[in-house]
Nucleic acid binder design. Structure first.
Lengths: 197, 197, 197, 197
DNA sequence: ACATACGGGACGCCCCGTTTAT
DNA sequence: ATAAACGGGGCGTCCCGTATGT
């Protein structure tokens, strides 16, 4: 009885995982449904029963990436509770990830590039993701007692997206990737917000 | 007189302009050769005589965008000769462009996203473009007598790419786009480099 | 019951029939794949799954015409068992067909004209077809006890091909098509072979 | 001065000769204007000044072939003045030509195959050519005092066209081409017409 | 659930016959 | 006479989403 419900779940997850990896590596347009079907070992009809269209599959993949990102970030800064130090820890983690060998850039930027229409499921999730990032940064900035936490959060978002772009552009093997400058830059922006008057 | 109607602008230029606009609006994969041919009023064979493949056309479009960007930037900061003020002027111009109504993001980021392979003509030009940006920023930082001009230039590049991402993500109609924070953030980073030691 | 509407005739057959008719009417070079696809109501990929190339499709069409020709001929001279009378019956049937309103000539001649290279699939089948005709004529000539059945068969083949050429050249509406002379000419050749020695 | 008028004439002939040879070897559809231009060493505009379209060029080529055929035939049966013997000589010449190594078939049949529409310039000339053949045969048959010269001429035309088809189908290297049977078959048909009553 | 096929459409690259500019 | 341009078409491939047949 149980497998009647649990096995489809596994199929859906396998599709999401496989498709997400392929999309991330090669791009959304470059990966076709047939490739995903072959790589995930499911039938085409199974895929289309779970995701009515490729766009919906993309949306689900990006949504899943959104959740995984937060899980990763929370894990990465776990234990750092003091707000200002947590802000810095975030940028240290981001810089480390962006210069790690398996990072190819930001999938939310990618989906927004490949599907410029704001109504696209993937684009929608990407915007929400960036909004969530800036919200979190603002919350931390406010908790740290910094001036103009909203403006600071936006400045830090610019920095973070610049890091992902650098990862995309220069790759992980670049000798002196600009991404490594992220923690120092964040520190400077935070310090400026601390002494602002 | 004659050229007003009998001498069509060189076909190659018409193709580049039309293709560049279409690619920028809808993406590189989303725009087909036939669309470009139809929109530019050119024969398919004419296009393929000038550009052996779509990838080459993309490369040429991005190269053209690279040149146009520099022309725009030089015009935008014309007359501001003092290095530190010129750095700030650059970020004011970038923020203004990024929040203008016809800006959809950075085509160099886009081509790097849609063609992750570093050997792709478009990707190659995009990387060179970003390198040129950071070189210019470093030159200005050094001329301004700032500390660690190389690190500062990389930090400012992060900022600038973050601005383009914000333009892509939130569009020009967003009430409070993070892109507007670019000049203040750049000022903070420059100030930090000025007082470092 | 169901097959009346839900089971479409095998796509391969529909393609062969449609393509055969179009090729016959307009020529092999003059009919493009897209036209065949549109006329047969089939997807292009379906066509290319059944026939790897246009040349292969042409070969299959000519092969099918070969089979249909024999089926027609056997039906046309059905019941005429005596060899010499059967030979005459063949030429009466051929002359009748060649002067009928829907005859445009011989598709085997046509494919040999449009694809002069002997290795072409269509050309190959055409040669085999003509060889089969002359073989059948020789067999009948020998069974009729005629002299030099091989030579007679070749003479009759010349006659038959001349009939198809006349059909092609003058069309079915010509008042006095040379094709009508085929039975009398065949009779004369057969009579000459009967009295030779 | 002279070359202003004589050189264009030479160009026209060179085009006709080159195009005729190419068309004959590879077919009318298979040979493009560019190929003819390159092979004949004239400018494209020169070609289009002499022949308004490819169809017209084809018509002119076939017309030229028509004249060359008659020149060849008259030369081949030169000196044979007695009508019945001349008829036989015609078929001996035709059989010899059809089995010679450079004969690829009948260009008039070919143009009728590749352009089935009777209004096509090439098709028109081809029909006229065949009509001229049958007229000549009828004239000779009548001069020879044979019965029903019209019917005999048509029978002989069938035979002759069968010879060209055999040449096309089996090529010049076939060990026992049916084309070689033409003289004997013609003799039989003529003999039958001589003894008819 | 797998595998195979299908319809429809777009795409990439190429060639053709024809005209215009240089 | 060279060379480019032009609209149109051709072939072969791919993709998405659906429909069968086990």
């Amino acid at each position: 009885v149980a497998e009647h419900f649990s096995i489809p779940r596994a199929a859906r997850d396998r599709i999401l995982e496989t498709a997400g990896a392929l999309f991330y590596q090669h791009g959304f347009h470059a990966v076709g449904i047939d490739t995903i079907v072959a790589a995930s070992g499911v039938a085409k009809m199974t895929l289309y029963r779970h995701f009515p269209s490729k766009d919906d599959l993309i949306g689900a993949c990006v949504e899943r990436a959104h959740q995984e990102f937060w899980a990763w970030l929370n894990r990465a800064v776990e234990g750092v509770e003091e707000p200002r130090r947590r802000l810095l820890a975030i940028f240290e983690a981001v810089a480390a990830l962006a210069t790690s060998s398996h990072c190819l850039g930001c999938t939310f930027q990618a989906v927004a590039v490949e599907f410029p229409e704001p109504e696209h499921p993937g684009h929608r999730v990407a915007v929400a993701h960036k909004q969530a990032i800036v919200d979190e940064l603002r919350t931390l900035a406010a908790a740290a007692g910094l001036q103009a936490p909203d403006a600071l959060a936006q400045q830090l978002l610019l920095l973070m997206d610049g890091v992902w772009v650098a990862a995309r552009m220069f790759g992980p093997h670049h000798p002196a990737s600009p991404a490594r400058q992220a923690p120092r830059a964040a520190e400077a922006l935070i310090a400026a917000a601390a002494t602002a008057g």
